[in-house]
Design a protein around this nucleic acid. Sequence first.
DNA 1: ACACTGACCTGCGAGC
DNA 2: TGCTCGCAGGTCAGTG
Length: 268
Amino acid sequence: MPELPEVETVLRTLEQQIKGREITGITILYPKMIEDDPDEFTAFLMHQHFNTFQRRGKYLIFGLDHGYLVSHLRMEGKYYLMKPEEPLTRHMHVVFDLDDGRQLRYNDTRKFGRMKIYPEGYDFTHFHDLGPEPFDDAFNADYMHAYKKGRKCPVKELMLEQSFVAGVGNIYADEILAASHVRPGRSCARLTRKEEEAIVRNTREILAEAIRCGGTTIRTYTSSLGVTGRFQLYCSVHMQKTCRVCGSEIKVKWIGGRSSYYCPHCQK
DNA sequence: ACACTGACCTGCGAGC
DNA sequence: TGCTCGCAGGTCAGTG
């Protein structure tokens, strides 16, 4: 399931592979994936080039000659570069023909991913009410303290709010809280200043480390070239049975509609 | 404004 | 073996 580090990895891989390529054809096999009228989507993109590659939260933003193509992979979205003669499989929903004869194919088992076009000059700063990027200076302990003011929800829910910090999903939220020695069910109103500082610091460090590893592979995620992420080797609580530090049994708790893994001994 | 729930999807594994 | 059911999870719309 792609979170910020996986999206970043996909982006960098695609930049190496398709930068400068022209879209010479588009086949939409599952129209609900496109948030625009499919004909307008196709007409807009035809003969434009993939020029720039940006990320905002978990959104991929492809800069074209005149406008943008934005893609969200949601849970299982993947891009593959293939030859036209290779067979289409049942989960390939959008195919872009490129001017070098290859095809960029969007594959999504659960059809949750979405694509949308945006006009030239569109400002993505406040896109979808996204909060600061974790590596931005604006994401700091003062900001966190001000953001959570008046809130009482479990800190895990806060970590998953894209308007708080952009790009953190279920896996990394668990890892960040484990590294910060804070239980996911703790009310965000009861965090100490030191804990807020630790959460901010660990958000940066863990995401940066995951990007260095090329993302996480849990269940079905692989990046666009089928590169397998290595971060699962370093997961300390998510999907684990015992704590790497103290050997305690990892607990699973249902918080905010998602399973949350934590060590009852190391996390307070 | 915040909190909570269901919808969107398909594959997989558990239980019967 | 074959069926049903619950779970996986990012985002958004709808309701309280």
